[in-house]
Simulated scan of single mutants.
Amino acid sequence: MTDPILHRRSVIAVILFTLITGGIYGVYWIYITTRDLNEFTGDYRIKPGWTLLFGLLTCGLYMFYWWYKINDLIMAAQIKAQRPFRSDNKLLFVVLRIFGLAIINMAIVQSDLNDIYTNLHLAQTPQNEIEDDDEWSDY
């Protein structure tokens, strides 16, 4: 059994670490999220290193495009994990980014990734490894 490429992260921790570090963790989160989604979906159109470079060179303007395109990777990951996607959040992500609320986008994306991870983890766990809390059924 292999571990899924995507990693479960606390939505609250992602928000708090981003706020505490003045956005530095947010930059790291963008990199690892892009990398993990690329590896999971097999779609390498958005490269994590180039995302950070273009974001820096364009003073953040490239990140509007990134928020728009990352939703495609999330929806592809949800389809691959056989999870129904909630909605196409492209426009929401761009509008929130315009108003400086990209941290809400991060919470939405991480929540979706956690849902995918949970589904993959449950699908990969063999039935005999799932513990039965009812001790009386063994007698």
Rank of each mutant, 00 (worst) to 15 (best):
M1V: 15
T2M: 01
D3E: 12
D3C: 00
I5Q: 05
I5K: 07
H7C: 03
H7A: 09
H7V: 15
R8V: 04
R8W: 14
R8L: 08
R9G: 06
R9K: 09
S10T: 01
S10R: 04
V11S: 07
V11Q: 10
V11H: 05
I12C: 06
I12H: 00
I12G: 08
I12K: 06
A13K: 14
V14E: 11
V14M: 13
V14S: 14
V14L: 15
L16V: 14
L16R: 12
T18Y: 06
I20L: 11
I20A: 02
T21Y: 02
T21A: 01
G22L: 09
G23R: 13
Y28W: 14
Y28N: 07
I30P: 00
Y31W: 06
T34Q: 09
R35C: 04
R35A: 13
R35M: 10
D36R: 11
L37F: 06
L37A: 06
E39Q: 15
E39F: 04
E39C: 09
G42P: 01
Y44F: 14
R45Y: 10
R45P: 00
K47N: 15
P48T: 00
P48A: 01
P48Q: 03
P48K: 01
G49R: 05
T51W: 04
L53T: 07
F54Y: 05
G55D: 00
L57T: 08
T58H: 13
T58A: 09
G60K: 07
L61Y: 04
M63E: 07
M63W: 14
M63I: 06
M63N: 10
F64T: 13
W67Q: 14
Y68N: 09
K69Y: 10
K69R: 15
D72H: 05
D72Q: 06
D72Y: 03
L73Q: 11
I74C: 12
M75I: 15
A77H: 03
A81H: 03
A81M: 03
R83E: 14
R83G: 02
F85M: 10
F85V: 12
R86N: 03
R86W: 05
D88W: 02
N89M: 15
N89W: 14
N89P: 04
V95G: 02
I98Y: 07
I98T: 05
I98S: 05
F99P: 04
G100H: 03
G100N: 07
L101F: 04
I103A: 05
I103F: 08
I104E: 12
I104D: 06
N105G: 11
A107R: 11
I108G: 01
V109L: 04
Q110I: 07
S111H: 13
D112F: 09
N114L: 04
N114A: 07
D115S: 13
D115Y: 12
D115K: 12
Y117I: 03
Y117M: 00
T118V: 11
T118Y: 09
T118K: 13
T118H: 12
N119S: 11
N119D: 08
L122W: 13
L122K: 15
A123S: 12
Q124I: 05
T125V: 03
T125M: 07
P126Y: 00
Q127L: 08
N128W: 12
E129D: 15
E131T: 04
E131S: 06
E131I: 10
D132N: 15
D132A: 15
D133W: 08
D133S: 04
E135T: 13
W136M: 11
S137N: 13
